[in-house]
Amino acid sequence: MWKHIAANALTLGVVLIAALAGIIQIGKSRWAEPGPLESATFFEVPRGSNMREVSTRLAEDGIVSSGSIFRIGTGYAERDGDLKFGTYEIPSGASMPEVLDILTAGGPSVFPYTVTYMVRQTDPEIRVRERIPGQDQLIEIATFAPGDEVPEDYAALLERGVPITWRVSVAPGLTSWDIINGLESVDFLDGADMPVPPEGTLAPDTYDVARGSSAEELVNRMRVSQERILADAWASRAPNLPITSPEEALILASIIEKETAIAEERRRVAAVFINRLNQGMRLQTDPTVIYGITKGEGGPLGRGIRQSELRAETPYNTYVIDGLPPTPIANPGAEAIRAALDPEQTNEIFFVADGTGGHLFAETLAEHNQNVAAWRAIEAAREAAEGAQTGN
């Protein structure tokens, strides 16, 4: 009898071991196979969450096929304590190891909504966009000017408390006064009572910020970024430039930034100014004259430059002074800084607007005079067309 019982027990043990092995094999297979998620989605790991809570929600949201297997697998991989709080994008069909990698990587949160304050010299605006998981494009929800009535869709997002990425985008070529004045109007930042930093020391870019954080903290980030950009460009500058310091490079870069908004022209415009400096010619650039008039405050000049202003002896009138003005005239972007320190190799010493937003370049005064005549003809035609429309 005891032999019979022992034999049955041995048989049962073998069956249980075989069953356990089968369960483990099934678990391994489900752990590694593509997940059930049919389309990409956002998933939030709240601060203080544990793996049990997260695995349960992953299964409820249809991201993994089994919360238990996910939890056991993370424990087996000794990563059940590696969760990083934040909001993450989970791609469709992600396997459990892929989901685990995403939730433990600790990268920046990816929120479904983005609010960007566009700091510009004129017509600043707030853009509210929705990001569809698995797609690069952003869908517009609302665009409005600061001070306008808040659109209902945007107000609804704020009321619901949905996760939002808050951004401030600073356009290249703004003066420090423009930037500080703009940041003081950003309603999701604390921007009160900030001093205006030295001209040229702030890096134009798009910055992620925390809602309610200090605008002064953002300004410090911009300053550090500009220092790094300038140092890197100075370290790799072209040889034999008539630029003796990073500060002079920043001044020239600010002039380049104000002279052209076309990326492909920056190094060519830089070449014109470098060639002029090498030949002892005056820079004769209108943006410096304008800066001497406005001191970078109050926005655009709003009118043409008067002849008396072109003749006036000011530190910024490059029609009168030799060399560079004493300070930058704006905050240049990284590409303008690199252009100032790595210009194209040309013999050109003139340029004038071509009527399309770009410029015509010339090596000789005769060629330049032809380009100027062409530009004046374009201006005259435009004025005639505008006059005809006004007359109608």
Rank of each mutant, 00 (worst) to 15 (best):
A235V: 08
S213I: 12
L310V: 09
R306P: 09
N317P: 04
P246L: 04
T201S: 14
T294S: 09
T314K: 04
I290R: 00
A271E: 06
R211N: 11
D286L: 12
A203C: 03
N240I: 10
R266C: 09
I274P: 06
T288D: 04
N278I: 10
R282H: 14
S213K: 09
I293W: 09
S245L: 13
P195Q: 08
A215D: 03
G292E: 13
E259W: 10
T294A: 04
R221D: 15
A233V: 04
T318K: 12
L250Q: 01
D205H: 14
K258I: 13
P198M: 14
T244R: 08
A231N: 11
A215N: 05
A312W: 06
I290D: 00
E216H: 07
L277I: 07
V272Q: 08
T288K: 04
S236V: 15
I293C: 09
E265I: 01
I256Q: 04
I251H: 05
D205K: 07
A210R: 05
S245F: 11
V219D: 06
T285C: 15
R237I: 14
Q284M: 14
K258V: 07
L252C: 02
L252Q: 03
S254G: 03
T294L: 08
R221Q: 15
L218K: 02
I293A: 05
R211P: 05
N317G: 07
K258Q: 15
V196K: 06
L301M: 15
L241E: 12
M281S: 11
E259T: 08
T288F: 04
I274H: 06
Q284A: 10
L202Y: 03
M222I: 02
A233M: 08
G299L: 01
N317H: 03
V224A: 15
S236Y: 10
R228A: 12
V209E: 02
E257C: 04
G280I: 11
E313N: 14
I305K: 01
G298D: 10
N275D: 13
E257Q: 15
A203I: 00
Y207D: 10
L283I: 11
D208L: 15
A263I: 01
R276I: 12
S245T: 12
G302N: 07
E257H: 02
T314V: 00
S254L: 02
G292S: 05
I251E: 06
T314L: 00
G296E: 03
T285R: 04
R266H: 08
I290Q: 01
Q307W: 13
E199L: 05
I262Q: 03
A263L: 12
K295L: 13
E265P: 00
R223A: 11
M222P: 03
S213L: 11
S245W: 11
L230I: 07
M281F: 14
I293V: 12
I251L: 07
I274M: 06
A270W: 03
N278G: 10
T294M: 02
G299I: 00
A231M: 07
E265F: 01
R276Y: 15
V272W: 10
A233S: 13
A263E: 14
Q307I: 13
T318V: 09
V196R: 07
A249L: 03
L230H: 00
G292P: 04
I262S: 00
L202Q: 00
G299M: 02
F273R: 03
R282I: 15
A271F: 12
N240P: 05
T201R: 07
L283Q: 10
